[in-house]
């Protein structure tokens, strides 16, 4: 079927199974968005724990900070392709399968959440300490400071960080696809690489690029919209 070689092989559009391409695209989008939501939630929680336990005195805080910091550093340093394989038994237990987009979710979240958590921690540290003190002097609780100051005052940074993280998640979904998680990564690996269908590779690349551009555009828009520091 795909016996054309050379540069022409990129443009054999009649060799593309468009409905397979469509469903692979949806799988990629679905995996990315679902894991993004989980990564943002877990990342903010972990980032908050790191931030709040950082400069507190008391053994409890120090131990929590050390343990969470260590876990974050470990999972942040494992190359993703290895992490998927490492977490296969975990995926099997959690979602009951090691094949398909669902199976990729645990490893996607475990790899990106620590990455985002570190960013979140640094965004919180950049919030003006004078403002935090002002709100404390109004009688706010720690929770009050988190909800009224830390989160709203770092919102544009949180969104910008989430955008960057989402884009790297798109990359991870493609890698996950290669070992059976579905999506465009899977399609390009099986059709484009193993069956030498370069057109599928090209179309897959273009779709992934468009997806990245859209995510970046939407992210930038939200940052601009929420940032009231310069008008």
């Amino acid at each position: 079927m795909s016996n054309t070689t050379g540069l022409k092989s990129y443009f054999q559009f009649h060799n593309v199974d468009w409905s397979a391409m469509m469903s692979a695209t949806w799988e990629t989008i679905w995996m990315t968005l679902l894991s993004m939501v989980a990564v943002v939630v877990f990342g903010i929680i972990l980032g908050l724990i790191l931030y709040e336990t950082r400069s507190k005195s008391g053994w409890g805080f120090k131990v929590i900070n050390w343990v969470v910091g260590l876990l974050v550093n470990i999972f942040r340093s494992i190359p993703y392709i290895i992490l998927i394989i490492l977490l296969l038994p975990v995926s099997k237990t959690l979602v009951g399968t090691i094949i398909g987009p669902k199976a990729a979710l645990p490893s996607l979240i475990v790899s990106a959440a620590p990455f985002y958590a570190r960013m979140v921690e640094s965004y919180f540290r950049e919030v003006d300490s004078g403002v935090i003190e002002a709100v404390e002097s109004m009688g706010a609780t720690t929770w009050g400071v988190i909800t009224k100051v830390l989160l709203p005052e770092s919102k544009p940074a949180l969104i910008a960080g989430a955008t960057v993280t989402t884009i790297s998640l798109i990359g991870y979904t493609a890698m996950a696809g290669a070992i059976g998680a579905g999506g465009l990564g899977n399609l390009v690996y099986q059709e484009g690489f193993q069956a030498y269908n370069n057109t599928v590779t090209l179309v897959g690349t273009v779709i992934i690029c468009l997806f990245v551009f859209v995510v970046q555009f939407v992210g930038d828009r939200f940052v601009k919209w929420t940032d009231k520091r310069t008008l």
Partner: peptide, 28 residues
């Protein structure tokens, strides 16, 4: 915290929340 509410404080660098409008800052 209750005691702190009886004391108002103003600062050299104002320490307003940039993410809130004037009225929302005052209402904080």
């Amino acid at each position: 915290r209750k005691q702190r509410q009886k004391i108002g404080m103003i600062f050299q660098h104002f320490n307003l929340l940039w993410s809130r409008t004037v009225i929302d800052n005052v209402a904080l």
